[in-house]
Design a protein around this nucleic acid. Sequence first.
DNA 1: TATAAGCAGATTGCATGCAATATTGACATG
DNA 2: CATGTCAATATTGCATGCAATCTGCTTATA
Lengths: 251, 251
Amino acid sequence: MPKAADHNPSGTHPKRRKTGTAMKTPTRTEKVHEALRQAIIEQQLSPGARLPEDMIGDSFGTSRTIAREALLRLSVEGLVDLMPNRGAFVANPTLDEGRDIFVVRRGLERMVVLQLAGNLNATQITELRRMLDDEEMAGARDEREAIRLAGEFHLRLAEMTGNKLLVRYLTETVSRCSLVLTIYGRPHSVDCGIDEHRQIIEALIAGQGDKAADLMDHHIEQVAGRALLESRKPKSVQDVLSSYASRLSQG
Amino acid sequence: MPKAADHNPSGTHPKRRKTGTAMKTPTRTEKVHEALRQAIIEQQLSPGARLPEDMIGDSFGTSRTIAREALLRLSVEGLVDLMPNRGAFVANPTLDEGRDIFVVRRGLERMVVLQLAGNLNATQITELRRMLDDEEMAGARDEREAIRLAGEFHLRLAEMTGNKLLVRYLTETVSRCSLVLTIYGRPHSVDCGIDEHRQIIEALIAGQGDKAADLMDHHIEQVAGRALLESRKPKSVQDVLSSYASRLSQG
DNA sequence: TATAAGCAGATTGCATGCAATATTGACATG
DNA sequence: CATGTCAATATTGCATGCAATCTGCTTATA
């Protein structure tokens, strides 16, 4: 193995100890998976971009096996399109698919707040309030951070239900929503209104499940609307070309 | 390649033609994936059973690579638990996890009917009605078939929304629900009441979204209740042992 | 006898090699 | 000049081999 000898570039300890603390997964596969995931969500990899196994393997100093596995996972999450015998591409959802994703997200978020209403304990309430304050502070100065915190708010809410499956689905969906926003959204409107978050929390604390659900529905609708209804950017090469083609035939 | 020479036991044509019909995936990986999936859902593989890569590879006449990929996919779907350096096991959800799964399913089904209400076209309506009739016929004689048809009904409904993501999530969730039922459910009560299905359809046709949603909620609640509330079977080794452990410390 | 260390077997993690398939450009042909 | 065929190249699909890790048994030691 001439190549595997020195692929621990980060310098951190990659192995999982057998101590009882159950450290995170040590496998290179997981690391690559997470790295790619981040790269896609943070728009370092544009939708539609090709992702050859070799290239990924070389980039991370691993073999294609690892890259392949990471791509497979990402494809299940919907962040990567895997075409048989063709290769992998950063997902490039159509506008309609984007709408579908937002629809599902809305439904999931609704489940979250319905379960949470009236069931928050004191610790959770203080944590959420602190998150809101953080959001507010960041909102003024660091836009990028504000977006991150806003996303985290939704995820944290889901975690508080204790429902693993719900968390997984919402995580996936939120990721895909960011992807959709990078394609069809305006540059970077802070997608979440902090006031809306605050209202939702208050409704949850007051045990007003239906109200919280409606607020959340409205909130997500808002985000989706801003991005998907206004923007008329065509997205895929096909769309672009078809619009050019129609222009040609008219002229 | 001494072994790969003769692994087309089915005799069917394994290759995908390049004709425009876009045949299903031809890859062996997909086939193994689907086969394992069926085996788990149909209880041919009991929850908690070990799934060594070698064994699977041998069974299907492929290498570990394929088995590995299939297992990875299944683990993402939640039908298989993958333990690092330990191997794969048929998922063995706890009772609480089972409840969580049903909660999510209820929410997803609710989304489906809310979207469908008043939006069914004539073709879809006749198809659904025909499915109901089939269910009713099968219900009397072939229990196994009745269960299959009942499951298909829910999935077909989801497909009619045209929302791919919703379909994927519901498919996954329904699979996991059957798994949960095999662990905690009684032998084989036909889990879906046909009358309930019929009522839902009628509400959908009438455009009564809220009513359909409530019916569906009730319907799933019913299934979950029958299985999860009554049965007091302890489930995992951990649960068993923890109950024994507490007994110890008390005595 | 009970506990700990050490060894052997089984199984996964990962890398690599070869065959199969898709895409691109060259070339021939109407 | 347009179109169809074919070879060259790039990339995936899959199998296999070796090292790392886990499990259980055996053996040494108090």
